[in-house]
């Protein structure tokens, strides 16, 4: 009888284990395996035998100075995008709780529309708006002939704006739901004690919303670190002389467009490790501050 009892959880876990194993473990295992092989199109179609190369894909990657440049640019760009997304999303979430029904509906609809637009169409539309000669923005400011994508920082700024525009609605909606769930009594008590708006936000809302914020922050970091479409479309595959490459675009260009799948897998593994590290550090920091997620 006791044997059956100890085995029962295993059987019950099996369906979940099969699904998780099939969807996550197996692809991750394949990724890791490919990253230690010399695996190009010639190997896929059987023209040449597959060869084990050990850490060669990794050493080539880590000794490539361009990789480090691109990694640095990606980290800074993602960090800026995450901060901007959170600021815009949180600001508008608070605004949503303050305005009356009609404006709230309008703002929500506008945000939902931005969220729903496919990344390729969104990026293309923004490119029309900021076109060098014919763009609405350049005509509005009377700066026809100004190429936004010529300078590295204006190009990153423009792409960053599109990334924020497409990802703030998620933050806004999630935080709005969180704020609405905060007990009114707590807010009333704070108001009675003489807390202003600013103080209520930082000392009441933020601590209560910490678990929601954690999810929003981690999601944003992962999304913005992996940005591909906006860079690919707007800077035509990495900008002038590759000045706007981010890690995902670099991986695509170096590995998949060149059919060097082994090398691409190595970049994928490195990206996964970086994101895993960021997430773990962030979660630990949260735990240390006394919050259990």
């Amino acid at each position: 009888m006791s044997r059956v009892r100890t085995r029962a959880p295993l059987w019950l876990l099996l369906p979940a284990a099969v699904v998780l194993g099939g969807l996550f473990l197996y692809p991750m295992y394949q990724l890791g395996l490919l990253s230690v092989l010399d695996f190009t199109q010639a190997q896929v179609s059987g023209g040449q035998p597959t060869r084990f190369v050990g850490a060669e894909n990794y050493t080539r990657l880590l000794t490539d100075s361009r990789f480090w440049d691109v990694l640095l640019a990606t980290v800074l760009f993602a960090a800026a995008c995450v901060l901007a997304t959170l600021a815009v999303g949180a600001g508008l979430a608070v605004l949503l709780t303050r305005v009356s029904r009609i404006p709230r509906l309008m703002l929500s609809l506008a945000a939902m529309a931005a969220w729903a637009v496919p990344a390729v169409s969104g990026s293309t539309t923004w490119m029309f708006l900021f076109d060098t000669d014919l763009g609405f923005v350049n005509q509005l400011f009377g700066i026809e002939g100004f190429n936004w994508l010529y300078d590295r920082y204006t190009a990153f700024g423009l792409v960053g704006a599109v990334v924020v525009w497409a990802s703030f609605p998620f933050v806004m909606v999630t935080l709005y739901a969180g704020i609405e769930a905060v007990p009114k009594s707590v807010l009333e008590a704070a108001a009675l004690d003489g807390a202003g708006t600013w103080r209520t936000f930082w000392q009441i809302l933020v601590p209560i919303l910490r678990p929601v914020l954690a999810i929003v922050v981690i999601q944003s970091i992962i999304w913005d670190f992996k940005v591909f479409t906006q860079i690919w479309v707007m800077t035509r595959g990495g900008g002038l002389a590759g000045q706007n490459l981010t890690l995902n675009v670099y991986a695509y260009q170096q590995a998949f467009a060149s059919s060097e799948y082994g090398r691409g897998a190595a970049i994928g593994v490195v990206m996964m490790l970086i994101l895993l590290a960021v997430t773990v550090v962030y979660l630990r920091a949260l735990r240390r501050s006394g919050e259990q997620l």
Binding site: Y26, Y29, V44
Partner: peptide, 14 residues
């Protein structure tokens, strides 16, 4: 289970 997967699967080559 993991060991089984590892031995069973190599990247596909036609």
């Amino acid at each position: 289970a993991l060991a089984l997967t590892i031995t069973a699967c190599a990247p596909s080559t036609s």
